[in-house]
């Protein structure tokens, strides 16, 4: 792999989306990253790069470094980037949102849940560590693989079958959830058949409301109902 100066831009990439706004989404922060990354790697900005303050950009923040790497490669090879910033922003947003937001969060939670047996504090720490291992590894490798593969970096994602990861992680999460539920029923609450019936009823209620919850309002209502049920000893 080519030697790239990534550390300053890596740190900045942790909070580049802090300027997110509805006018240009992450555009302001991304322009800042591009300028920084190119400066540290002694490369002039591409001639066709949009320097306008309303430059629009939005992607999954954990995968943004792949785009920085490929833009640097394109600029050094051709002096311009075309519309690859836009195309890869959309494509990596699709892949990243599905994996990081949809699949990895519950996966990290259910894997971490076992740490509660040792100490409840470890639950928070292990969730933080598991989720961020993926975050940091993707961010660091993104610079290098983006630079190595250039505009063909999607081949890398195809090679590792990244669009299937969320399904695999969902499967593992479901399995872990099943083990946790079985564990809770067996060791914590079930003493006679009435507890089994209550558990089944709560499970059915849970399935029904999980289909219904679509936003914060429904979530608050559901949490309140569950809190009342638990308060009265269901």
């Amino acid at each position: 792999m080519k030697h790239l100066v990534i550390f300053p831009t890596l740190l900045k990439s942790l909070f580049y989306q802090g300027n997110w706004n509805i006018t240009n989404m992450q555009g302001t922060g991304f322009r800042w990253l591009v300028k920084d990354f190119f400066k540290h790697n002694q490369t002039e900005l591409p001639s066709d790069f949009d320097l306008s303050p309303v430059y629009y950009f939005n992607t999954n923040p954990y995968l943004v470094t792949f785009i920085l790497g490929l833009l640097l490669k394109e600029t050094q090879m051709r002096g311009k980037i075309g519309d690859y910033d836009k195309i890869y922003a959309s494509a990596l947003a699709a892949l990243g949102d599905t994996f990081f937001w949809h699949a990895l969060r519950p996966f990290a939670f259910f894997i971490s849940l076992w740490a509660i047996l040792i100490n409840p504090v470890f639950l928070v720490i292990s969730y933080f560590v598991i989720f961020n291992i993926f975050n940091v590894v993707f961010r660091i490798l993104g610079f290098y693989y983006g630079y190595t593969f250039g505009v063909n970096v999607m081949q890398l994602f195809n090679k590792i079958k990244f669009n299937k990861w969320s399904k695999i992680y969902d499967g593992i999460t479901t399995l872990m959830a099943g083990i946790v539920i079985a564990y809770v029923i067996k060791y914590q609450y079930v003493t006679d058949s009435i507890h089994v019936i209550k558990s089944i009823l709560l499970f059915i209620v849970g399935v029904i409301i999980s289909k219904w919850v679509r936003g914060p309002l429904e979530l608050i209502i559901v949490t309140t109902i569950l809190a009342v049920l638990i308060l009265f000893g269901v």
């Binding site: 922003a89 599905t98 937001w101």
Partner: peptide, 8 residues
């Protein structure tokens, strides 16, 4: 943006 996070 054709295919992105919201679409997928």
């Amino acid at each position: 943006r054709f295919i992105h996070g919201q679409v997928l």
